[in-house]
């Protein structure tokens, strides 16, 4: 069964802006799916239609076979939503916010309190349960958003740029938590600007441009589309470049080289060549993420 089925989805705002132009998209149950695109590509509009914050102009959307035109209640019941911006009541207590959300999903008060305790412990916010939301740091507010989205135990979690403005440590922690949720069977759909995030976590991705999907594939296949990759090579001592001129290396400083490798060239061959020419290699890493390059080439 598919978790999400979108057919010929169109959204035209009252201003005349065609934000989504006939998008077709399927997300399998249990998938970890990314929607990528520049600002204004239509990612947030698509997500907003899925969760009921924006009315579509035409097309159909099914969530676990529930048509949102006829069975939106059932569809909403199995979706958890983490919006881009903090949208909880800033003067309410942390646990009240989470338990209230459970109540809005029709979960009785006793279960709502139990569930909220469970998710707040999971995201490391239980100690702050009586704090006023406004007093939390940005990272903790982000965790609160995730806890609130999970309190009714959804089968699909939809996240709109969940790690925007989050520090590296917290981002990694959130990645681990999202992976754990996905491993537990929760289908995850996210939008993000961090392509590294997609490479690290997602199995499939769609790249949106001006309201249309320009590429939809597995992240693995998307990576393969890259024809050339630039590697940054750190060496202990710079040596003459004569023996590696065929790679057209660029010297950045006395310890750093940049080399472009085509898809048919092996990194191993380059390293052997470097060692044969007296370079002591201490580090090699890609200059940019593969998806980043693909993303830029498509947009």
């Amino acid at each position: 069964m598919n978790a999400i089925e979108i057919n010929n989805l169109v959204k035209i705002y009252k201003t005349g802006t065609r934000a989504v132009k006939g998008v077709n998209l399927t997300v399998a149950k249990g998938d970890f799916f990314a929607l990528l695109g520049a600002n204004g590509a239509g990612k947030t509009t698509i997500i907003s239609i899925l969760i009921g914050l924006v009315n579509k102009t035409s097309g159909s959307v099914k969530i676990f076979n529930y048509d949102i035109d006829r069975q939106f209640d059932q569809a909403k019941r199995i979706m958890g939503v983490v919006p881009q911006e903090f949208n909880f009541h800033m003067f309410e207590k942390v646990q009240d916010i989470v338990a209230t959300q459970a109540g809005f999903y029709g979960i009785d008060r006793v279960t709502a309190l139990t569930n909220s305790e469970e998710v707040l412990k999971k995201v490391g916010l239980w100690e702050k349960r009586s704090s006023i939301a406004r007093t939390l740091s940005g990272g903790l507010k982000r965790r609160l958003m995730i806890a609130r989205a999970l309190v009714h135990k959804p089968e699909i979690l939809i996240l709109d740029e969940p790690t925007a403005g989050v520090d590296v440590q917290l981002r990694f922690g959130m990645w681990d938590y999202l992976r754990e949720l996905n491993a537990g069977g929760v289908t995850i759909l996210l939008t993000t600007h961090y392509l590294e995030e997609v490479q690290q976590m997602c199995r499939h991705a769609a790249i949106l441009k001006e309201g249309e999907i320009v590429r939809l594939d597995s992240v693995k296949n998307l990576n393969k589309l890259i024809q050339q990759e630039t590697y940054v090579i750190t060496v202990r001592n710079m040596q003459p470049l004569d023996g590696i001129q065929s790679y057209a290396p660029v010297v950045i400083d006395e310890h750093t080289l940049e080399v472009n490798l085509n898809r048919d060239e092996q990194l191993n061959d380059l390293l052997i060549k470097l060692i044969q020419n007296g370079f002591a290699v201490t580090d090699v890493h890609p200059k940019e993420h593969r998806l980043e390059r693909l993303f830029l080439s498509l947009l």
Binding site: I51, G52, L53, F72, D73, Q74, K76, R77, M79, V81, P83, E85, N87, F88, H89, M90, T100, Q101, F104, Y105, G106, R148
Partner: peptide
Amino acid sequence: GAKFQRNIEEMLVAPMH
């Protein structure tokens, strides 16, 4: 206030009639 702070979305995403 709920509209302004956008916490009205808590109700709109839930299956509330």
